[in-house]
Structure formats: structure tokens, C-alpha cells
Design a binder for these strands. Structure first.
Length: 363
DNA sequence: TACGTCACGGTTGAA
DNA sequence: ACTTCAACCGTGACG
């Protein structure tokens, strides 16, 4: 497993196929763009394909969130709480009712329409799994809730509930930092991003990586430095950032797969916290900051818990970009990098701004 | 050269 | 416990 994760792209960057880039990198992309760095330069600098940079920036502009979308899962097609509730009522009213009769009633009562009415088999499953034995209602009531259904209804997700419980503090993004001129302040997001915390907030929070440097050594072990650490780092790094709430937490979970990321990113940490996803869905996927790839498990379950480790000042050092290179493929990057690309200049700017040190291109 | 777009192969997670 | 399948991912290539 270990080194199983990760591949190296044409730019020499490490990525995990099928998985989102670490939040740290995502954030960095947005930050750099806000500093006026061109997408193509960001792509080269962070070693992320330009298609990805383009996508992330476009999404950010549109939604105000740098977070990836919800991965996995499926829409609550039929088993919405309301439907379940009605089914339960029908069943309670007539324990001998057939599933098809329930279906008809759902339509008749306008609980569902023909497009979303559950199939008979779905109703049967609902009766079996969610409603269980009605004969003992009381019991049911007490136990059921939790039953297999995570309380986090997807509704959440799909309905754009807003805000995560989480970010109280994070308040929407509105507050743009003076320094950074943020463009869109979108707070309100169009999609299902619950509260897309914009980078602004994030930016406000300065982060861990700076100190941590996190990154993997160049030793052969690719991902060895488990991201977990990053995560923790972050968190600790930003105590300020309020939360870590359920969502958050999940958001923070470390994901192991991306060692490299950190290399150049600096800010991110905070951000992550800021951006929570809808707790409902993505739980961990978008892991923490640097942590990016965490495979957290179910966040909701874990809420709040695990984050804590590491004490406050974790200081790791170092990271330079070389890290990625240690991946599977040796460096491909050799490519032609422009020796002196504008980026570099910007870097300085950034550095000064955030104290970030971006690895300048090397070679 | 820069960048928007999309096929592709991949992962995830609710049902 | 296992399978489905629709959602998303980033890369890489095309234009």
C-alpha cells in the first residue's frame, strides 16, 4: 500500500488518480492566482496540470470554494426522511399494508411524484431496514433514528443546506482581507457547497506548513511521511481557526497519499479548516489541508474526535520541492522549464506576503 | 503559448 | 457483506 499511492504527472507533480488534490494545493492555486500569477505559471510551479488549475480556479470563481465536490454516494432518491416518515405512518396505520399500496399512497398523498416515488422493492427495504418492526413503536422510535441512516441526510448535501454547522466563525467569506483582493466574494454559493468558505478566510489564517515544511524527505519512501502529520500540524497550527467541528474534522483528517503536496504550500492549513464541506458528504475526502488525502472514514462518525494530536508547535522543516521527485518516476521535470519565469518574481511576492517559500523551479 | 474542454481511468460511498 | 452506480477526481490531449 504504501507506495502504492500516487503517480507523477508530466510536470513532476504527485497526484493520486481519482482523488482530489490536497486542500493545501488547491488553496495555493487560488492564492497564487489572486496574486496575479497566471494559471499556466501556477500549473508549472505547483506541478499540477493546467486543466486542473483551470478547473479549480473556475470553481472558485463560481462558488467561492476551493473544495472539491462531493465524491461518492448517491442521491437520496427515495429514502428521504419525509418519505420514510410517511411510509412509517402508513405502516403503523395498517401493519398489513403492502408495499405497492404504500407506493400508491405516497403518490396519492403527493408525498412523492411519479419521478421520485420509491419502487416497491425500495419500500420493502425501507420497511425492513429503517422502519423495522413497527409493532413496537416505542422501541423503534428510540432506536431507529440512528439506525443505518446517518443522520446527516443527504438532504443536506443535496439541498444545500447551508452552512455547516461548522463554521460559525468562519462566516462567510465576506470579509475579504484587505490585502488580498479577492475577487468574488461569493459567499453564496451556487451549488451545493454549503458554506464555501472562501479563501479569504482561509488566507487569513496562516498556516502551518510554513513551519512545518512538511514534507517528505527525499528518501525513497515515497509517501512515508504520512500526511497524518500534516493534518495534525495544521490544526495545531491554526488554533485560531475556530472550528474543527464535525465537519472540519473530517476535513482535516489526514490523508495519506500526498506527500508532496506540502512541499510548497504554505498556507493552506488554516484554510482547510475554514472550508468545510458539507459535512454531509464529503466527509473526509477532502481532507485536510495538506493532508489532503485522507481517507477518513466516516466523518460523521468521527466527528470531532480525532484531531487532536500534536502539540502546538510542530515544526518541521524543510520542505522543498524536491519531494515529489522521489516518487515513482524520477524526475521528469527536467523538461524545459523556463529559467526565469515570471513566477519567480511572484514568488517573492508571495513569500513576503505569506512567508511562503515556493520552490522555485529548479533546474 | 495560454487555456478551456473533455475523454479517460480512477475512487468513493449511499442505496 | 457485497454489489451497483452515479457522483467526483486529475491528467493528458486536443483545439
Amino acid at each position: 500500500m504504501e507506495q502504492a499511492y500516487g503517480e507523477v504527472n508530466q510536470l513532476g507533480g504527485v497526484f493520486v488518480n481519482g482523488r482530489p488534490l490536497p486542500n493545501a494545493i488547491r488553496l495555493r492555486i487560488v492564492e497564487l492566482a489572486q496574486l496575479g500569477i497566471r494559471p499556466c505559471d501556477i500549473s508549472r510551479q505547483l506541478r499540477v496540470s493546467h486543466g486542473c488549475v483551470s478547473k479549480i480556479l473556475a470553481r472558485y470563481n463560481e462558488t467561492g470554494s476551493i473544495l472539491p465536490g462531493a465524491i461518492g454516494g448517491s442521491k437520496p432518491r427515495v429514502t428521504t426522511p419525509n418519505v420514510v416518515k410517511h411510509i412509517r405512518e402508513y405502516k403503523q396505520g395498517d401493519p398489513g399494508i403492502f408495499a405497492w399500496e404504500i407506493r400508491d399512497r405516497l403518490l396519492a398523498d403527493n408525498v412523492c411524484d411519479k419521478y421520485n416515488v420509491p419502487s416497491v422493492s425500495s419500500i420493502s427495504r425501507i420497511l425492513r431496514n429503517k422502519i423495522g418492526n413497527l409493532s413496537q413503536p416505542s422501541h423503534y422510535e428510540s432506536t431507529k433514528q440512528p439506525t443505518s441512516q446517518p443522520t446527516l441526510p443527504y438532504n443536506h448535501i443535496y439541498q444545500y443546506p447551508y452552512p455547516n454547522p461548522i463554521s460559525p466563525g468562519s462566516t462567510k467569506v465576506g470579509s475579504h482581507h484587505p490585502g488580498v483582493h479577492m475577487a468574488p466574494g461569493h459567499v453564496s454559493i451556487a451549488r451545493s457547497w454549503p458554506s464555501a468558505h472562501s479563501v479569504n478566510n482561509i488566507l487569513g489564517i496562516r498556516t502551518f506548513m510554513e513551519q512545518t515544511g512538511a514534507i517528505a524527505g527525499a528518501d525513497g519512501t515515497v509517501y512515508s511521511p504520512k500526511m497524518e502529520e500534516w493534518a495534525s500540524v495544521n490544526r495545531t497550527g491554526f488554533p485560531a481557526t475556530q472550528n474543527i467541528n464535525g465537519i472540519e474534522k473530517s476535513a482535516v483528517d489526514p490523508d495519506i497519499k500526498y506527500p508532496q503536496a506540502a512541499s510548497s504550500l504554505s498556507t493552506v492549513g488554516g484554510f482547510v479548516q475554514a472550508c468545510a464541506y458539507p459535512s454531509a458528504n464529503q466527509y473526509g475526502v477532502y481532507g485536510g489541508p495538506g493532508a489532503g488525502y485522507v481517507t477518513p472514514g466516516h466523518h460523521w462518525q468521527a466527528q470531532g474526535s480525532s484531531l487532536a494530536h500534536h502539540g502546538p508547535g510542530v515544526t518541521v522543516h524543510g520542505g522543498d520541492i524536491s519531494a515529489p521527485m522521489t516518487f515513482k518516476h524520477p524526475v521528469r521535470e527536467v523538461m524545459h522549464r523556463k529559467p526565469s519565469s515570471p513566477i519567480i518574481k511572484h514568488q517573492d511576492a508571495l513569500s513576503s506576503v505569506h512567508g511562503i517559500s515556493i520552490p522555485a523551479s529548479s533546474t
